[in-house]
Amino acid sequence: MAAYKRDGRKFAMLSVYDCPTARIAAAAGIETLLVGDSLAMTVLGHPDTVSVTTEEMLHHVKAVSRGAGTSMVVADMPFLSYQTSPRDAVLNAGRFMKEGRADAVKIECGRNAAPTVAAIHDAGIPIVAHIGLTPQSAGQLGGLKVQGKTVDTALKLIDDARAYQDAGAFAILMECVPAEIARLVSDALDVPTISYGAGPHCDCQGLVSSDVLGLFDAFLPKFSRRYAELATDIGKALSSYHADVVAGRFPATENCYGLPADILEELAVRLDERNGGRQ
């Protein structure tokens, strides 16, 4: 990632949750794959992200890692897997590296998160620091709202980003931050910045695959963009399948396995012999 920042080249991140999607994303050239805790909502049906567990996240990180190819896999650490202590953070981050085969981890950085970032970094684990809107602590932020809209909060974002860079974060992810502030943050850093709703001036743009593909319809964030409507296409396909089953059009001859005529003839003879033996 550092080379992209140094050379002024843009790159992409995509939040994915399974092996087939990871393979497709990697083949499409997506450089970084984030296994986001958004899967709590987009895959598992929870109302928010805080419900997902470390074990559930590990399950999906393993699947994505198997399909990622040369794309970097970043594991999103879920609520209370790192906030309790730097030691807990290191141990759980290590699980995502050892068991999940991730290349890096990400944590949402609230107040005084620099020691946790430093502990994970000092353990030899690459770490992305997430600032701006941090959904795991949205209650403390007044809800799912844009962050950095005042002078004081904008200055804090810049200071926090610098602190997390100095603590060892190799990239800073900003979510729901005004584009002008994100530009100031990006210009102030030596490490790459990743935008999830932080405008065009970051080094990397990230989106959630379920939004990109039109698979999640509960809401679409302002910063997102649909590139397909797969939920509609899937619905049509499943309706057609159901109609064919009900009407007897499926399975057709080409969907069935058959037997050679001589086997069928021998089977008929044997069945006749059995039936005759019972009489």
Results as ranks from 00 to 15, higher is better:
residue 232 T to F: 12
residue 231 A to D: 15
residue 229 E to P: 03
residue 241 Y to S: 01
residue 239 S to G: 11
residue 236 K to M: 09
residue 257 Y to Q: 09
residue 254 E to N: 11
residue 234 I to V: 14
residue 262 D to Y: 15
residue 247 A to N: 09
residue 260 P to W: 07
residue 265 E to C: 07
residue 238 L to Y: 14
residue 237 A to G: 04
residue 269 V to K: 03
residue 267 L to K: 06
residue 260 P to L: 03
residue 246 V to N: 02
residue 243 A to I: 04
residue 227 Y to E: 04
residue 255 N to V: 05
residue 238 L to S: 08
residue 252 A to W: 06
residue 265 E to I: 08
residue 247 A to Y: 05
residue 236 K to V: 11
residue 236 K to A: 09
residue 239 S to R: 08
residue 254 E to D: 15
residue 228 A to W: 02
residue 258 G to D: 10
residue 231 A to F: 10
residue 234 I to E: 06
residue 241 Y to I: 02
residue 250 F to Y: 11
residue 242 H to G: 01
residue 241 Y to H: 04
residue 262 D to N: 12
residue 257 Y to C: 12
residue 244 D to Q: 13
residue 229 E to I: 05
residue 253 T to K: 13
residue 268 A to Y: 07
residue 237 A to M: 10
residue 236 K to G: 02
residue 248 G to W: 05
residue 247 A to T: 06
residue 261 A to Q: 15
residue 261 A to L: 14
residue 252 A to G: 04
residue 233 D to V: 10
residue 249 R to D: 11
residue 236 K to L: 13
residue 265 E to R: 06
residue 265 E to L: 10
residue 253 T to G: 13
residue 253 T to M: 15
residue 259 L to S: 10
residue 238 L to K: 07
residue 244 D to E: 14
residue 264 L to P: 00
residue 264 L to Q: 08
residue 254 E to K: 08
residue 227 Y to S: 01
residue 236 K to P: 01
residue 247 A to R: 02
residue 247 A to V: 02
residue 267 L to W: 14
residue 245 V to E: 08
residue 262 D to P: 14
residue 261 A to I: 11
residue 269 V to E: 11
residue 233 D to R: 06
residue 227 Y to P: 00
residue 262 D to F: 13
residue 246 V to D: 10
residue 237 A to C: 08
residue 241 Y to C: 01
residue 248 G to H: 04
residue 247 A to M: 03
residue 244 D to N: 12
residue 247 A to Q: 05
residue 240 S to F: 08
residue 268 A to S: 12
residue 228 A to G: 00
residue 246 V to W: 06
residue 269 V to P: 01
residue 257 Y to H: 13
residue 227 Y to Q: 00
residue 250 F to N: 00
residue 250 F to R: 00
residue 245 V to D: 03
residue 228 A to L: 03
residue 267 L to S: 14
residue 254 E to W: 09
residue 269 V to N: 05
residue 255 N to W: 03
residue 265 E to F: 12
residue 258 G to L: 09
residue 234 I to L: 15
residue 266 E to C: 06
residue 230 L to M: 10
residue 236 K to T: 09
residue 235 G to D: 13
residue 235 G to R: 02
residue 260 P to C: 04
residue 237 A to E: 08
residue 230 L to Y: 03
residue 240 S to V: 10
residue 257 Y to M: 13
residue 227 Y to R: 00
residue 250 F to M: 01
residue 235 G to I: 08
residue 265 E to Q: 15
residue 234 I to Q: 04
residue 246 V to Q: 10
residue 260 P to A: 07
residue 234 I to A: 09
residue 247 A to W: 07
residue 228 A to Y: 02
residue 232 T to I: 15
residue 231 A to T: 03
residue 256 C to T: 11
residue 254 E to M: 10
residue 238 L to W: 14
residue 231 A to Q: 08
residue 229 E to R: 13
residue 243 A to W: 07
residue 262 D to I: 09
residue 241 Y to N: 01
residue 241 Y to K: 01
residue 255 N to I: 04
